[in-house]
C-alpha cells in the first residue's frame, strides 16, 4: 500500500512533508463529548497542562476541517498520562457531519492501535498515505483508551502536503500585488 511512499523524514522531491496543523480551519471544526473545561483548542497550545478531555465516557470525536485540501502523511498525538491515552483510534475522511452513531455504522478509512511508543513527542504515526491524498476534513474517533474514565490528549500535530493551487488566500493576494 504505502510502498510508493518514501520513509517519513526524507520527503518526495515534489511534495515536501510539512506540518499542516495550521491548515485547520478552526471555526468549522467541532468535537463531541468534550469536557467543557478542557476544550479541543488546547491541543494546539503546546502545553501539557492544557488538555482535551472526554466528558461522559472515554469516547471522543474530533472533527477537523482544512482550509484547503491536503494530503495527510502522518500524525503525532501526545497524551499526558498513559492511562487516559487513546488506544483504538479510527480515522474517517471527508465527512460533513459525524456523530457517535456514524462511528458504529461507517467503515473507517484507517484504524490505529496506538501504543505508548506512539505518544512520545517526537514520534510520528504513519498513515496509509495513498488513502489520504485529498483530505478536506479528517474525523478522529477515539473508540477506547487504556482504562481511565476519561480520555485526555494534550497535543495533536498533522504532517502532510497542501494540494498545490488550491490555496484561496494566495490567489487573492496576487491580483492585489499586481
Amino acid at each position: 500500500m504505502s510502498s510508493e511512499g518514501p520513509p517519513a523524514p526524507p520527503p518526495p522531491p515534489s511534495n515536501e512533508i510539512v506540518d499542516i496543523t495550521d491548515k485547520i480551519a478552526k471555526p468549522e471544526c467541532f468535537v463531541l463529548n468534550a469536557d467543557p473545561k478542557y476544550p479541543w483548542e488546547n491541543l494546539f497550545m503546546g502545553d501539557d497542562r492544557l488538555q482535551l478531555r472526554s466528558d461522559t465516557d472515554e469516547q471522543l470525536i474530533l472533527h477537523l476541517v482544512f482550509s484547503e485540501a491536503v494530503k495527510v502523511h502522518s500524525l503525532n498525538l501526545v497524551a499526558p498520562e498513559m492511562e487516559a491515552a487513546p488506544a483504538t483510534v479510527k480515522l474517517y475522511l471527508n465527512k460533513t457531519s459525524f456523530s457517535f452513531d456514524d462511528a458504529e455504522n461507517i467503515e473507517p478509512t484507517q484504524v490505529l492501535e496506538l501504543t505508548e511508543e506512539d505518544y512520545k513527542a517526537e514520534k510520528v504515526t504513519l498513515l496509509k498515505f495513498v488513502k489520504f491524498q485529498r483530505v478536506s476534513s479528517l474525523t478522529i474517533f477515539v473508540e477506547n483508551n487504556n482504562g481511565a474514565d476519561y480520555t485526555a490528549l494534550s497535543m495533536l500535530r498533522l504532517f502532510g502536503t497542501p494540494l498545490q493551487g488550491t490555496d484561496v488566500s494566495k490567489i487573492q493576494k496576487q491580483p492585489a500585488q499586481g
Partner: peptide, 8 residues
C-alpha cells in the same frame, strides 16, 4: 439524555 450529552 446521556446520548444527547455525548453529542453536545
Amino acid at each position: 439524555g446521556k446520548q444527547l450529552k455525548k453529542n453536545g
